[in-house]
């Protein structure tokens, strides 16, 4: 997955320029064909599913003629077939259309820095939610995400984040009976 990410910055521009011979050999070949990474991913998942199915214990109490292995085997084989067919399609010049949307500017190069920042902030929340409690980790998540997305209002952003997080905590935890961890802050209050 990571190696397909590496060249996506350039390939949007490259697609429209219809592949001028910039690189040599394999690199030039792979340029603009990062979609082959999807095929590799499908292939890997297929192998994983098949391995898991074939190494399954066979002494389960089976009811009926079809056991727990059949469907995974079918899905695994289908994944391999689709991976190959997709690779053929890509090599023939087929291309998955990137999805558009109101706030999406496909002409702009991919901004992976923002995505990595967001993923990092999100992961931090996953690790902080239990020790710090939701009101704090949630506020950090909102502020961090807004910062990553380009908001630089250093007075307003933390305030919005804190209010949103606290209100959400009370609405879910107290009003809707969906438990969220309060953390040390809520124990003090």
């Amino acid at each position: 997955m990571t190696d397909s990410h590496a060249d996506t910055n350039t390939d949007t521009a490259n697609n429209t320029a219809n592949k001028t011979d910039t690189g040599t050999g394999l690199r030039a070949f792979l340029r603009g064909r990062s979609e082959l990474g999807v095929c590799a991913l499908l292939l890997a998942i297929g192998v994983l599913v098949l391995t898991d199915a074939l190494t399954m214990d066979t002494d389960f109490a089976q009811r009926g003629p079809v056991g727990p292995r059949t469907v995974p085997i079918v899905v695994g084989v289908a994944l391999l077939v689709v991976a190959v067919l997709l690779a053929v399609d890509v090599l023939r010049g087929g291309k998955g259309e990137a999805e558009g949307g109101e706030d999406i500017d496909l002409a702009a190069p991919g901004d992976w820095r923002t995505v990595l920042l967001l993923a990092g902030v999100f992961l931090a929340n996953a690790f902080l939610i239990d020790p710090l409690g939701f009101p704090i980790s949630g506020a950090l998540l909102f502020w961090g995400s807004a910062y990553a997305l380009g908001s630089r209002a250093f007075h307003r952003d933390p305030l919005i984040a804190a209010v949103l997080s606290t209100v959400t905590f009370f609405v879910f935890d107290r009003l809707l009976a969906v438990p969220l961890p309060g953390g040390p802050l809520m124990e003090v209050l």
Binding site: V121, N125, F142, A146, S151, S165, F172, V178, P181
Partner: peptide, 28 residues
């Protein structure tokens, strides 16, 4: 402002996923 909109989506997605089972692993 778009940063607030998409930060809000991530925020509520985290709330929802955590609410499923109270497991931080679910967030990962």
């Amino acid at each position: 402002p778009r940063p607030y909109l998409y930060a809000g989506i991530l925020f509520f997605a985290a709330v929802g996923a955590y609410a499923v089972g109270g497991e931080p692993l679910d967030l990962v």
